[in-house]
Simulated scan of single mutants.
Amino acid sequence: MEPNRSRVGDLRGSAALPHGFVGAHALQAVRAVLAEMGTSPEEVCRNAAIDLRVPYEMEAVSFASLGRLMAAAADRIGCGHLGLLVGQRTDLLSCGPLGTLVRHSRTIDEALGALETHYVLLSRGATIERSTDGLVATVTYAPYDPDAAGIAHHCERALGALTGVMRSLCGADWCPDEVWLPRLAPADPSPYASYFRAPVRFSQEITALVFPARLLRRPILGADPVLRAAAEHGIRCAKAAIPFDLSHEVRRCVRSRATRSRIGKDEIAQALALNPRTLCRRLRAGGTTFRSITNQTRLGIAKQLLADTTMGLAEISAVLEFSEPAAFTHAFRRWTGMAPSAWRQDHRTTRPPN
């Protein structure tokens, strides 16, 4: 993206999104894709009995409604990679002040850090997180409700958009080393190979882009400190309008850690600058508990991996940090009243269309 000041996005503060909502740019991208294919969200909503307002003037759409819309649209037009097409239509200009901050950060690491820290301005239905392990860097996308309708489309929408962001910063020829998606392999994987230009691993436990860690140190050409400062000011104003919700913040922290480390109350409390006892007391006052949030998160991930991937029960058990598959089966039966194998049989996602 050129560092032209007329092309870096609206520097005014964005409206605070409600919990579980996504910025309207995602809905507009769905509209554009469907229009190209000769249909409309209105038609899809009518046929699928989805209650969703779809004018361009909407500032946000619920994460759940957008997922149902994408799932219904994919079935309607026979396009299993609809989420990928939607993600390709997201660019930094559509991200307001956050897009400007990302574009004018000093390095790739700083840009991804800004996206990770302030992603709440674009979506309150998922988190983005970067990490490094030796020579390898990973950017992951983690939805709060991983078993929600259309979640596979959400995941590939996010990776499509993240890849576009990376190409705007690194050049149009950039491609990741690998792409990981927690969904069944489509009958025709060529659209993914064509867009990512990298190996795409389906039936994975997380949604992620993988690339060399050295890339994080790369400076961003044309970064403008004046525009960066203006974007930072707009973001501070926008985030100041977001009311603090402890249960939501705990859920966000738990979800970001759920597939890479054991979820500890002390660790989450430290991340939120709270004493563990204070954390538990405030959660109880809000009508929930730390254990309830962690169990709901683990159950959601388990359902997603059972329905949308070919991972075995032992693999899912290990991902969720159970001591053994039998412990996972016992917990899943306690949560749902069914064994995971029986639940998978009833909810197995069929192979997506081409």
Rank of each mutant, 00 (worst) to 15 (best):
T294C: 14
F196H: 08
P225L: 10
T288N: 02
P191G: 09
L181V: 10
R89F: 05
G164V: 04
G337S: 11
H330C: 01
A193Y: 07
R252M: 03
R255Q: 13
R236V: 08
R262D: 08
L93F: 13
L66T: 05
N354S: 13
A198T: 11
L11S: 07
P199C: 11
S14C: 10
A241Q: 14
R282D: 07
E178N: 11
H153P: 06
V8I: 13
D177Q: 15
E2H: 11
L306K: 03
Q204K: 10
E315S: 12
A74Y: 04
L320G: 00
D145R: 08
D10L: 13
T278L: 05
I220N: 08
T138F: 09
G150C: 13
R124E: 13
A49W: 02
A26E: 10
A16G: 04
R298V: 10
A318C: 00
W180M: 12
N47K: 10
Y141G: 06
A142F: 04
K265E: 13
V54K: 00
E116W: 03
A269Y: 08
V139M: 12
G87D: 00
D91G: 11
G286R: 06
G99Q: 07
K239T: 15
R344Q: 10
D109A: 15
R282S: 05
W180A: 10
A172G: 01
P189C: 11
G286W: 00
A231R: 05
R344T: 02
L181C: 04
Q88T: 11
L93M: 12
V22D: 15
I206T: 14
P276A: 12
L159C: 06
A314V: 10
A314L: 05
M37N: 13
G99H: 03
G222K: 07
H25Q: 08
R252K: 08
E42S: 01
Q88E: 15
E324R: 14
T336W: 07
L227K: 00
A187E: 04
A126W: 00
L209I: 05
G20W: 04
E36Y: 02
D145P: 00
R5H: 08
A74Q: 02
R344Y: 04
V44S: 03
G337H: 09
A29I: 06
A229Y: 00
E156V: 13
R262I: 09
A185N: 05
R197W: 06
C95W: 13
S256Y: 02
A240W: 05
A314W: 02
L216R: 07
Q296V: 01
